[in-house]
């Protein structure tokens, strides 16, 4: 089974107090550390697990600068066979343009399955995967938490809201957007990543992809980004742990949930 997996490099922001940059349209990113998008980690792992089980090749693709090749080397270290980076140059990107760029590359590859993460940690859009499937004319499913190939189709699990999974069958070739928790991504060591540097990594320019002006025009524009207002939200209970505990107990008792 030949698998293509799309990955993105995103900033690590969990512990960071983000600030807005000079343009007002993005956050300051110069001091941020970059990692593989969490959802994509699961997608890479799933691609390699399937490839280990069913044979075939796994190809990792990203869009970005040379720095972004790091996520490809990680994917190669996990077990992908080759990698492709699409260099967007100065192109303005949104979910739509990204899906077009990816489609432009993937359409010429041989594959049975395309995997993406459900969404990216930075823009939280969650649209690239399914748009890409449509451009390629593939059957598709979003928020997938289980894949079991059987011949030329797969039984998949889609995570629904409210603690429910939907089981369905989907024929190959297909695109699945992978949800976290589908597997346990393995650790790849620094040494492993360096060794993976020997595997094939191809770089493509946008011009190589035969895309139209329309394909390369974003359909949405970020007008501004802003931090949530500080004032809204919880009333902070001050004091040492003991005072806090007393106050919590008072609230619980007042609400009648604790005697």
């Amino acid at each position: 089974m030949n698998i293509v997996v799309c990955v993105k490099r995103v900033p690590l922001t969990q512990e960071v107090d983000l600030e807005i940059d000079g343009t007002g349209k993005d956050v300051k990113k110069d001091a941020l550390a970059y990692v593989v998008n969490d959802w994509d980690n699961y997608a890479i792992e799933e691609a390699v697990l399937l490839q280990e089980k069913f044979g075939g090749t796994a190809t990792a693709i990203t869009i970005g600068t040379e720095d972004d090749e790091e996520v490809l080397r990680r994917a190669l270290a996990v077990g992908a066979d080759r990698a492709i980076r699409i260099d967007p140059g100065d192109l303005e990107l949104d979910g739509f343009v990204i899906s077009k760029l990816l489609a432009g590359v993937i359409k010429d590859l041989e594959y049975d399955l395309v995997l993406t993460g459900v969404q990216a940690d930075d823009d939280n859009c969650g649209m690239v995967g399914i748009m890409l499937a449509e451009h390629l004319g593939l059957s598709h499913a979003a928020v997938v938490t289980g894949v079991e190939p059987e011949g030329d189709e797969a039984t998949i699990k889609v995570e629904l809201e409210g603690g429910m999974d939907e089981v369905s069958k989907i024929p190959f070739p297909a695109l699945l957007s992978i949800q976290t928790g589908i597997n346990e991504p393995r650790y790849v060591s620094i040494m492993g990543i360096r060794k993976a540097g020997k595997k094939e990594l191809k770089v493509l320019e946008v011009a190589d992809l035969n895309l139209t002006e329309d394909d390369l025009t974003p359909r949405t524009v970020v007008e501004e980004v802003f931090l949530p207002p500080e004032t809204e939200g919880a009333e902070i209970i001050e004091g040492d742990a003991s005072t806090v505990a007393e106050e919590i107990i008072r609230i619980l008792t007042e609400k009648g949930v604790m005697v």
Partner: peptide, 10 residues
Amino acid sequence: IFSGKVFSRV
């Protein structure tokens, strides 16, 4: 965006 740390107007 950024898991709810920042808002954006689109």
